[in-house]
């Protein structure tokens, strides 16, 4: 893991750190992150709030500069906002003045892609996430889950090789969340894109991923990387298997060791 060879990896993060200046001096948010991600891999990053996982994601997307280390995506150095990317945030960040379809096609407008082809693809994506018939709805007419679906379609419109997601389902109810996890996996499997997914939820991370990266509290470090050897396509019933429980237990134990999770009777 430490000496990740650049060959074979779609993303390679080497020795990345990040400090933020505050009034009390510099605060180290990320410390010496090394991570290699293969093309088409689904990798989740779990960690407590404030462990710098969102910061890592933004560095990966080229949206904020790192304080040290290098990031390569698809063989290119990331020093400026990367355009070969789709982003989904916890908030859907839809433009309220555009319909669902127009929000998705915005991606094509800015990138000066063919409008007609983009509209066709947007309609297909809406269909895939179960929003057929809602293309002309304004965001305020949609529920939170529907809005987030639109924002996922927007991130996928231009078929980016890399999609980064920052707790995209964090604000949704449990049922909607399950459905969106399944929809996301379906789209991921169809497209062959690489996904870096940030979450608070251990079971979400295990359910979705090929590998789960466990991070420690500030300063954020990679504590462990766990391979999830569950068959694909994933089924909701897999969450009840002993193997799934074993992975979840493994992550939970790390957080207990780190002091992120404390059970009252331990003390």
């Amino acid at each position: 893991m430490l000496n990740s060879t650049r060959s074979g990896n779609f993303i390679s993060i080497e020795g990345v750190s990040k400090t933020f200046p505050t009034r009390k001096g510099n605060v180290l948010a990320l410390s010496q992150i090394d991570l290699g991600i293969k093309p088409g891999e689904f990798v989740s990053i779990v960690g407590p709030s404030g462990c710098g996982k969102s910061t890592l994601l933004m560095i990966l997307a080229g949206l904020i500069p790192s304080s040290g280390g290098v990031v390569h995506v698809n063989g290119r150095d990331i020093t400026a906002p990367s355009a070969d990317i789709g982003i989904v945030f916890q908030r859907d960040v839809l433009l309220e003045w555009r319909t669902a379809l127009e929000n998705i096609v915005l991606q094509a407008e800015i990138r000066k892609m063919d409008k007609k082809a983009a509209t066709e693809r947007a309609m297909q994506l809406l269909d895939m996430v179960g929003l057929k018939g809602f293309e002309n709805a304004f965001p305020h007419e949609l529920s939170g889950g529907m809005r987030q679906r639109v924002s996922i379609c927007r991130a996928l419109l231009h078929e980016p090789p890399l999609v980064v997601m920052d707790e995209p389902f964090g604000a949704l109810d449990a049922l909607t969340r399950d459905q969106l996890q399944l929809d996301l996996l379906k789209m991921w499997q169809k497209s062959g894109m690489t996904v870096v997914f940030i979450t608070h939820s251990i079971s979400e991370a295990v359910f979705l991923s090929d590998r789960v990266v466990v991070m420690s509290p500030r300063p954020g470090r990679i504590e462990e990387i766990i391979d999830i050897d569950l068959p694909r396509p994933r089924r909701l019933s897999m969450r009840e298997t002993p193997k799934f429980a074993g992975y979840a237990h493994q992550v939970t134990s790390i957080f207990k060791t780190l002091g992120v999770l404390r059970e009252g009777d331990d003390e």
Binding site: M58, A61, L63, P81, S82, A83, I85, G86, I87, F89, R91, V93, L95, L106, Q107, E109, I110, R111
Partner: peptide
């Protein structure tokens, strides 16, 4: 997030102003 989104789309400053 909206600014980040526009940057990830490669929006120019003009596009960022008039579209977002």
């Amino acid at each position: 997030e909206m600014i980040y989104l526009s940057q990830s789309m490669g929006a120019s400053p003009m596009q960022q102003f008039f579209r977002f």
